[in-house]
Design a protein around this nucleic acid. Structure first.
Lengths: 193, 193
DNA sequence: GGTCCAAGTGGTACCGAGTACCACATGTGT
DNA sequence: ACACATGTGGTACTCGGTACCACTTGGACC
């Protein structure tokens, strides 16, 4: 009962997961998101339809397969920041975190662009993206609260920070390399009105 | 071929629509959103399931039946604002619009609370809410752009404004009357960091 | 009034997402 | 080698949503 990470089972699972993700993105690239069924993905990945749903809660989730990594980064980068009490301080902190996160997200520019294209074309995926941001927002607010930040600041800072991020994504459209600077500019514009 | 608004047909349609909304909210109050099927709603409203989908694009939409009015208000209140060029100016304008919109939205506090409760309990409805905000954000950005506002400001101001609104909603939780002041406070906190 | 057309209605049949259940196979510890 | 746990994929189901259908009804015109 050692449950080692290196077991054959674990490796097989990772392979199946990777196969599903690869198959899905191939099909999305070919026919878009809406015109691909879960059965299609499962078939190309050579697994049962049932198995797909064992790895991904729903069809949207496979398009956010990197989400886990991003969330982990977010978690670690926000967990041990020094306490702040004013909105200006909070935004100054989040500015740096947001810039770093941009670099993480755009590490693979091709992947980032595919993802953005999918988001632009599919409202259901935008929904999912918003849901993700919502979760990150809520967690960040709780982190701030736990560090003694006043409730008004703890609620406002994350929402504003994500507003800056979203605006920067809108502005840079198809140029991931420009994203960090755009985010920085958004925070700066806000800090000196 | 006069197509008058007062025709029997129009009145019947309005009645059917109202019946569906009433039936839906009754059932949502009884069993929540997820445990109510469209067939249930149609049955209680005494219409066919097909008819439901003729009035509402999907199950979520019936929970946002007021959306149209709010969007119209939003449209008229943002359409003819004087042009601005700086972020501070844009946010100052949006502060007033947002406060007014709060009053519109909370005009019927009971309804507002029911709606908020549904949103809190159902991720799918939060998705829908975000989608609505997204649309308003995009339209506002386009309006600002059309009025000659610089792109960076036009993209950032709406996102930040909605961030203030969302933070205010979070903070006031179950007290609609406090919403306008909370929104004002959020904008003020941002204007003087 | 009667007639005709447009528009609304509801039924049937269908598709795809997602779930529950079950027999089967495969990795793993002993 | 054995037994158990775990993953697999198939079947059957529910529900959201769409397409198409025949049927009814309101409204315009005579």
């Amino acid at each position: 009962m050692l449950c080692r990470m290196t077991g054959l089972r674990q490796r097989k699972q990772q392979r199946v997961r990777a196969d599903i993700v690869r198959a899905a993105f191939e099909l999305f690239a070919e026919r878009g998101f809406a015109d691909v069924t879960v059965a299609d993905i499962a078939e190309r990945a050579e697994v049962g339809r049932t198995t797909f749903f064992r790895y991904f809660g729903d069809k949207q989730e496979v398009a956010f397969s990197d989400e886990g990594l991003v969330l982990d980064e977010w978690q670690t980068r926000t967990a041990d920041l020094p306490p702040v009490t004013t909105l200006a301080q909070a935004l100054a902190q989040l500015r740096e975190v947001a810039i770093d996160m941009c670099r993480v997200v755009t590490e693979d520019p091709r992947r980032f662009l595919v993802h953005q294209r999918l988001l632009r074309a599919n409202p259901e995926l935008r929904d999912r993206s918003h849901r993700k941001f919502d979760g990150m927002c809520a967690r960040l607010r709780d982190t701030l609260l736990a560090r003694g930040t006043p409730p008004a600041v703890a609620a406002l800072a994350p929402q504003v920070a994500f507003g800056c991020y979203r605006a920067a994504v809108e502005l840079t459209e198809d140029d991931p390399a420009a994203l960090p600077d755009a985010v920085a500019a958004a925070f700066d514009a806000l800090a000196r009105p």
